[in-house]
């Protein structure tokens, strides 16, 4: 698989002159390959958002380099590189500029000098992909949080990015809004093979990814499939996260003396184990 983006031994400090301060990102390396869904998880202050800013050149590392399509990111290729990455941020109310949904999606296209005819088609296509094409002339502030984030995703998609970056994009949404956005991303992936990088501390969101990077205090603590990462168990809690729901309940059941064959990641596995180990006897 071709590499889209990589960080190579990247170190960044907000206060490089202060020897005693901790690096926000400390010698981190990873690569994102085409078609993957990667999740970066970690506690508040673990370096997740700094990584996002390093990826799109809002910050530059003091050591190491960031490569976009194998080219080191620098002042000269900054704008071109950014156009390959669509970003959706945390607060749905802070990223609207247009007076209507379709104006908003068109904004970045206009900035990039896309011809009008092409623009109309791209706006419609992008909104159709997130199932918001019924809302072309709606005012953004009348939409729900989940709908706003879907429009934000459409705005990113309209630029035909190589990579969609979700920076805590579901953390301010109600449970329905969160489910709506994640469903949209899953459908997009299934239909278009879009590459996704999501920065999150929602473990249920991370479980949808192909690969998870687990950050702690600026360092990459572990990298692996969701199952491998969640097998770290109490380390997750120690580093400010939580256990996935089914795993937490498996542990509590075993503590209560309920025999189980193992500890489970999914609700279905846990229910099945409870059935075979206990009730179906």
């Amino acid at each position: 698989m071709p590499e889209i983006l990589s960080l190579n031994n990247v170190t960044f400090s907000y206060t490089p002159e202060d020897q005693n301060s901790r690096n926000a990102v400390d010698n981190v390396s990873f690569a994102v390959e085409e078609g993957e869904w990667i999740a970066i998880v970690g506690h508040n202050g673990s370096g997740k958002s700094t990584i996002a800013k390093l990826m799109n050149g809002l910050l530059f590392p003091q050591q190491g380099d960031v490569r976009v399509l194998r080219e080191p990111l620098c002042e000269e290729n900054l704008w071109e590189s950014r156009s390959l990455m669509g970003m959706v941020f945390q607060n749905p109310d802070n990223q609207f500029v247009g007076a209507t949904v379709q104006d908003d999606v068109a904004f970045a296209l206009e900035n990039n000098g896309i011809p009008f005819e092409d623009m109309v088609k791209r706006v419609h296509d992008a909104l159709e992909q997130v199932k918001m094409n019924q809302f072309l002339d709606h005012e953004p502030h009348h939409l729900s949080g989940g709908q706003k984030q879907r429009v934000a995703i459409a705005g990113a998609l309209a630029l035909k990015p190589k990579l969609l970056i979700l920076d805590e994009a579901t953390s301010m949404l109600d449970p329905q809004g969160r489910a709506e956005v994640l469903q949209t991303v899953q459908t997009l992936r299934a239909e278009t093979g879009l590459t996704v990088l999501s920065i999150t501390h929602d473990l249920e969101e991370a479980m949808l990814a192909d690969r998870v990077l687990f950050m702690n205090d600026g360092k990459k603590f572990a990298e692996g499939t969701p199952a491998e990462i969640f097998a770290l168990g109490d380390k997750l809690v120690e580093f400010g996260l939580d256990l996935p729901f089914a795993l937490k309940l498996s542990k509590l059941l075993q503590k209560e003396g309920v025999p189980l064959m193992g500890q489970h990641m999914s609700e279905e596995e846990l229910v099945n184990d409870l059935w075979t180990s206990n009730f179906n006897k």
Binding site: L253, E256, V258
Partner: peptide
């Protein structure tokens, strides 16, 4: 609800936390 469906009968109360449900199943 999934557990109750599997067991074929309801538990004695609605459990509000993971700890409560684990104790109830035990």
């Amino acid at each position: 609800h999934k557990i109750e469906h599997m067991m074929g009968h309801p538990l004695s109360k609605v459990c509000l936390t993971e700890e409560e449900l684990a104790a109830e199943i035990a």
